[in-house]
Simulated assay, not measured.
Amino acid sequence: MGADARAKPGSLSGGRNGASRSGLLGGIDWPATLLKGHPRSRQDLLRRPRSAQPSELWLVIVDASASTRRGGALSQAKGLLAELFDAAYRQRARLALLHATGTQPRWLWQGQKSASALRDWLDQLGAGGGTPLIEALQQAAQWQARRQNLQPGEQQRLLILTDGRLRDWPALPASQCPALLVDIERTPVRLGRARQLASELGADYQHIDELALRARSPTWNTP
């Protein structure tokens, strides 16, 4: 499949160099900030103490099925992913990336640091095929459990990007780590299943359009 979507500007600020730092506080902790909900002021932006460098793993599940072509959904998701990869590089977080499209999910990254190879994959990412999202969630939970046994001091976070366009799914266990589901459904008639999925997983829920609106706010872009 071709790369049918160009990355649009995402919802995180700071670019490649990140936000300016002063005193004992370092860069913005974007996963923790987004898990709190929409930042409405500078005080809502959580920063990481410079002296503290906890080992973190960000597990990202990307739904790039054919339905994500609609309304520029995948383009918006790619913009968010580009900034997330940059943030992981700056903060030295490790990444795991699970691509949910076609007939079965595929691991692209499993606990390494962010690298240019992820950018190359993102540039080529296109929508197509089925939606093996449930299988991806099940595989991710199993992998996380094994990883936690090997790295008990590591802090895990889960990010899911999906339009939620699934027919039915079995009962799912709640995520064992802080989780955020970003809904990328952007069709005129929305089914709203991503919100239901987030509820079952015990994950926080955000719609990508709302994140984009916040990105245009001065309090978001200039912390």
Rank of each mutant, 00 (worst) to 15 (best):
L35E: 10
P218Y: 09
G71K: 02
E83G: 04
R119H: 14
D209W: 00
L45R: 02
A73T: 01
T162R: 07
L25C: 07
T162P: 09
Y89V: 08
E200N: 12
P170Q: 03
V62A: 12
D204C: 11
A145M: 10
A7C: 02
R69E: 11
D86E: 07
D209E: 10
S41K: 01
T33V: 07
E83F: 00
D63A: 05
G14T: 00
Q142E: 14
A82C: 05
E210N: 14
D120F: 10
Q176R: 12
A5D: 01
R6W: 00
L108F: 10
P54Y: 08
P49W: 06
M1W: 07
L35R: 11
Q76M: 02
P105K: 04
G15S: 07
T68R: 09
W121K: 15
P188K: 01
E210I: 01
V62I: 13
L158T: 01
I160Y: 06
E185A: 11
W121Q: 15
A87G: 03
P105N: 12
L161E: 10
D209G: 13
D29N: 11
L25A: 08
R40N: 10
A194C: 11
A3E: 01
Q138D: 02
C177N: 10
G153H: 13
L45D: 00
G2A: 03
S67M: 02
G202C: 11
P31G: 13
Q91T: 10
A100I: 01
G10I: 06
C177M: 04
H38T: 11
T219A: 14
A77I: 01
Q151K: 15
R70F: 08
Q206E: 15
A87H: 04
R186V: 06
A77V: 01
D86W: 05
A88K: 09
L158Q: 03
L35G: 10
L35I: 09
E83Y: 04
W58D: 12
L213A: 06
L125H: 13
L46F: 04
Q155H: 14
E185C: 08
L158P: 02
R40A: 08
I160N: 10
S20M: 09
A136R: 08
P178V: 06
E200M: 07
N149E: 09
L95G: 07
T131G: 07
L98K: 04
L197W: 03
G72P: 05
G72C: 06
Q155A: 13
I208D: 14
D168H: 09
K8N: 02
S199G: 15
P188D: 12
G202S: 14
P31K: 08
G102V: 01
